[in-house]
Simulated scan of single mutants.
Amino acid sequence: MEILKVENLRKEYGDGNNKVIALDGVDLEIERGEFVAIVGPSGSGKSTLLHIIGGVDSPNDGKVYIDGNDISQYSSKELAYFRRRKVGLIYQFYNLIPNLTVRHNIELPLKLDKREINEEELLNIVKKLGIENKLDSFPSELSGGQQQRVAIARSMVYSPSIILADEPTGNLDRKNSKEIIETFKYFNKTLKQTIIIITHDEEVALEASRIITIVDGKIVGDEINE
């Protein structure tokens, strides 16, 4: 059953001689529970695609369906609710709030949405990520790998429909990169969590079950990775 459907997605920046076509008629379907890597050269449009799927950016044309809902028609307020409830966004530089503890960073999406915190579920997530003894620490007291684990926990705590990760290992060494990807694979297999990763790293891409290649705003490859 598809969880994501993108139809004829177009995104342009600038105008006249400065116009850049970031996405040029992209069509894409992703099934619930897939682990997908999106690859391509810098400027190919892969991050733009991820940001539109995540409701961070809006297309010039086309439609994006998540769980059957066309988010490309949402207002700014509806998109804010959507981001807090349906997608878990993970970035290369973690985006943690420095003056909040690890626990409070993880709980923040739930608190913004005035939802109750399931302590058992939170503890299960942080234990799997190996940060259960860091809940009272601040981001500055953590290594890069630990900060990315906090970002993952924050994205998982509200059980989103899709996890979207933009170069999640781009700021990590090889050991931490491997551990982060193994964590994604665990959540994908055990919780059937749908995960889409943008990456330049071939080794990271090869861990996904499906690899989509974008060049010049168009999908030029879509392969199942056995």
Rank of each mutant, 00 (worst) to 15 (best):
E12T: 06
R32A: 12
S42H: 00
N188H: 13
K19S: 09
K63F: 03
E202H: 05
D173L: 06
L23T: 00
L142N: 08
Y65F: 14
N176A: 12
S76R: 15
Q193L: 11
I163V: 15
A165M: 01
V64F: 12
E120Q: 12
N69F: 15
S58E: 12
G33E: 03
N8F: 06
L89T: 06
V6E: 00
L100I: 13
L89Y: 09
I38P: 00
K19M: 13
P168G: 08
K111D: 10
I152T: 02
V157A: 08
L112T: 14
L129H: 06
V56L: 15
L108S: 15
H200Y: 12
D222T: 02
K86S: 09
N188I: 04
D166T: 11
A153I: 05
Y81G: 02
I162P: 00
P168D: 04
P168Y: 07
T48V: 09
Q146F: 12
V157E: 03
L79S: 10
P109K: 10
E179H: 13
Y81S: 12
N171Y: 02
N60L: 03
G45K: 01
G88Q: 13
N118I: 13
E226I: 10
F82L: 13
E120A: 02
N176V: 04
E207L: 05
K128D: 12
L9Q: 02
I38N: 00
D136G: 12
Q146T: 09
I97A: 11
K5D: 08
F35E: 07
